[in-house]
């Protein structure tokens, strides 16, 4: 019996965001947008979903006069990401 894949992570953009955040301490919205190639609107929606699930934290602030949104993966998010990868490996093997 295959383990159930986490529905929060099993979406292309949300998985890309979490994978990206798993490799950094923090990343701002513009960086995530550039690396994922997503539109601002879609990325905002997916970031809100990840934040609501407790997988990432979102800090809104300013860098000089420019607004800046910084995202970080939480412990819960990292654990979910690890479980997701483990589940994927079971599917493949």
């Amino acid at each position: 019996m295959f383990p159930k894949l986490d529905p929060v992570l099993h979406s292309e953009l949300r998985l890309a965001v979490v994978s990206l955040l798993a490799g950094v301490e923090s990343a701002d919205f513009s960086y995530i947008k550039k690396q994922t190639g997503a539109t601002s609107g879609n990325l905002s929606v997916q970031i809100d979903k990840l934040s609501a699930a407790g997988y990432i934290t979102v800090e809104k602030g300013f860098k000089g006069k420019m607004p800046c949104t910084t995202c970080r993966l939480t412990e819960t998010g990292l654990e979910a990401f690890r479980n997701y990868v483990t589940a994927l490996k079971e599917y493949i093997s």
Binding site: G23, A27, D28, S30, Y31, K33, K63, M66, C68
Partner: peptide, 8 residues
């Protein structure tokens, strides 16, 4: 631009 990411 403002795009920034830091890792270890």
């Amino acid at each position: 631009g403002p795009a920034v990411a830091t890792n270890v």
